[in-house]
Structures are given as C-alpha cells and as structure tokens.
Amino acid sequence: MAEAAKLGPAARGRGAKSNRTGRFESLVRDVFDDGWGEDAEPAQILTQLQPMKSRTIIARNQSPDVGFDRSINPYRGCSHGCIYCYARPAHAYLGLSPGLDFESKIFFKPQAGELLAKELSKPGYKPATIHIGGDTDPYQPDEKHLRVTRQVIETLERYNHPFTIITKSALILRDLDVLSRMAARGLTRVAISITTLDRRLARSMEPRAATPGKRIEAVRRLTEAGVPVTVLFAPAIPGLNDHEVEAVLEAAAKAGARGAGYVALRLPREIAQLFEEWLQADYPDRARKVMSLARQIRSGEVYRAAWGDRMVGDGPVAEVLRQRFHLAVKRYGLDHPWTALDISQFQPPRPVSPQMDLFG
C-alpha cells in the first residue's frame, strides 16, 4: 500500500516531496508532522532494486507524437528523481507511489539481452528502429553495475539492428565503443536531454541526474566519436527554465550536436500534485506563476492529452516558446536533416531448434 506521506524536510537527494498514494489504492495513510521532529535531519531513502520476470522486452505503440513504434525500457522507475517525469504514474499500476517510491523502488530486467534475441529471432519479426529509454532513463546510476542497457545494445549490435537512445546521464560514455561502431554503419543516434544550465535548478529538479556540464561534455565526446547527437530541451517549463532555451541550444551546438527538439511541460495524473508540492518547497516565490503558465499552455487545464499538441501545448505562451525554439535551431545550425537508420543490415538470430538437443 502506497502512502500519502509528506515527509516534512525533503528526503535527501530525492526529487519528490511526498509519497502520495497511487490512484488505484483503496486505502490512504496520511503521515503528518506533529512538531516533535522539527530539528530532525532530512530522511535518507535508500534505493531498492528488484528484478522483473518479463516475457517480452520490446514494447509497441501507435502514438503519432513520438516518431517510433517500438521501444525498450530496461528499467521501471528511475532514481534520477526528476520531479517532472511523465513516467511516474506508471508506478501506481504496481501499487506503489508515483512520488518517492518511483525514484527509490526500481525494477530492472536482468535477462534483457536474452529476451531481445528471442524476439528478434521470431519468424514474423520485421525490423524497424528501436528506441531505448522512451519511459525511464536507461543509464540511471545502478546501470553502472547491473549493465542491463549494455546487454541490450550489445545484442542489437550483434544482429546489426538499428536503434536510438535517449538519456540525461554521462554514463552513456561507458558504451562509447558499441555506439561508435554502430554509428559508423548508420545504425544508431543518441539524444541527450538538457533542461537547464543552472546547476542549482538541476540539482533540485533532477537531483541524481548528471550535472548540466557533464551532459554537454557527453555531447562533445559522442560527437567526436562519430555518434550523431541531438539535444532535447525537455521539459520546457514556462516561468522556470524556458528563458534558457537559446542558451542550452547554443551550448549543445558548440559541443557538436546536430539536431534539437523540445517538449513542453506535461503534468498528467499524479505528477501535477507532486510537481506543485516541489515548487512550493523549492521555488515558493514563483510557484503560483509557474502553475498559472502551465495551465495557459493547456487551454486552462493542468494537462491535456490530445494527440498533436500534448508535446508542445497550445495558446499564446506555447506559441511564443515554439517560435523561439525554431529560431534558435536555425541560428545555431541544429536543423541538419537526419538520414534514416539502415534496417537493411539486420541479420536475425537463428532460432534454436529443439531437435539440436539430440546432439547434446
């Protein structure tokens, strides 16, 4: 049972300020501050890892907004703790909170490589670019020793299967060997998410993600290794980080990025309350303004899920952001056309025949 507990002092190193109950729970436990713990140190919440028993690894979608129809998410939950993360509500399906549970109770797929090889070997499989990290970051801190994402990209390299990958972690540089080889054959591209160049804002909003400087450095090193890189200014939050769009794109372009994209702030389901709690705690002087602007880009609502405008919003505030972004893209040369990744090189795994067991 998830909690609706506000923890008083912020949990150290975490983004959410509470562990709000998921929308499917019938019982709510409300913890309150009775004043006795007024001088207590902020709680330290340890990350708990749990393996998932998965039968499949490739997720399919029919969304017209994302540009791919299949993806792989090696992890469920993300210890980066980004307060705005649109994947948070998925933890409610597990009976957990989209708040602190999402960033401290992480599920991973230990047999990701084997599952992927099995799916690629199916007789009816038709190759198309696979996107890695569409929901949660494939290079969150525990990937350093779990190496689940490494399994996935090694399997894709083994069979020359094209893929794209998105992250806000400098840990991606660990896999520069695979990425550079795949890029040389026209089989991969990377997107680096950079929301701000302000270290204070980044530390508050994305407490366990790489610093802005390390992300810019990742862009530079990937580019130098021949890996095509695009930068994503996502999310663009009116009244909080939207003034940085030009600065972020300029820094990314100087580091070698060839393309750019942006996504306007999205606050579906439980995220709206979690985000507002965070604003009130860390940026109380502008909380009211930010929430007002967030509604202005969603036709007066906190969120609208309509295809076509859910990524960019609508109305005058959203239009100004759109124009500024596209002008900056042209100014800094981030409008290079992308060549489609080459699916013709795919060599499917040979299915294992049970008859081979006779020769064991």
Rank of each mutant, 00 (worst) to 15 (best):
E3I: 10
E3M: 11
A4N: 15
P9L: 10
G13Q: 08
R14F: 08
A16V: 15
K17Q: 15
K17C: 15
T21C: 14
G22S: 08
E25G: 12
S26Y: 09
S26V: 10
D34G: 09
G35I: 13
W36N: 12
D39M: 13
L46P: 01
L49H: 12
N61D: 10
V66C: 06
F68C: 12
R70C: 12
I72V: 13
I72D: 01
P74Y: 09
R76C: 03
G81P: 00
Y84D: 00
Y86A: 06
R88E: 02
R88W: 03
P89C: 04
G95Y: 02
F102S: 05
I106S: 03
I106A: 02
G113R: 06
E114S: 10
E114F: 08
K122E: 15
Y125R: 11
I130Y: 00
I130D: 05
I132W: 06
G134V: 08
D135N: 09
Q140V: 06
E143H: 09
E143R: 02
K144W: 08
I153D: 02
I153L: 11
H161F: 12
L176G: 01
L176M: 11
V178I: 15
R185M: 07
G186H: 00
T188Y: 04
T188R: 05
L201P: 00
L201W: 03
R203A: 15
E206W: 06
A210M: 06
R215Q: 03
I216W: 03
I216G: 01
E217C: 03
V227S: 02
V231L: 03
V231H: 01
I237T: 01
D242I: 05
V245D: 03
E250V: 04
G259K: 10
V263W: 05
L267C: 00
P268R: 07
R269S: 14
E276P: 06
L279H: 06
D282G: 12
Y283E: 12
Y283S: 01
Y283M: 04
S292E: 13
L293E: 09
Q296L: 12
S299K: 14
E301C: 08
E301R: 04
V302I: 14
Y303L: 08
Y303T: 08
W307T: 10
G313I: 11
D314W: 06
L321M: 14
L321C: 09
R324A: 01
R331A: 14
P337A: 14
W338A: 14
A340E: 15
A340S: 13
Q345W: 00
Q345C: 05
P349E: 07
P349F: 05
M356N: 13
F359I: 12
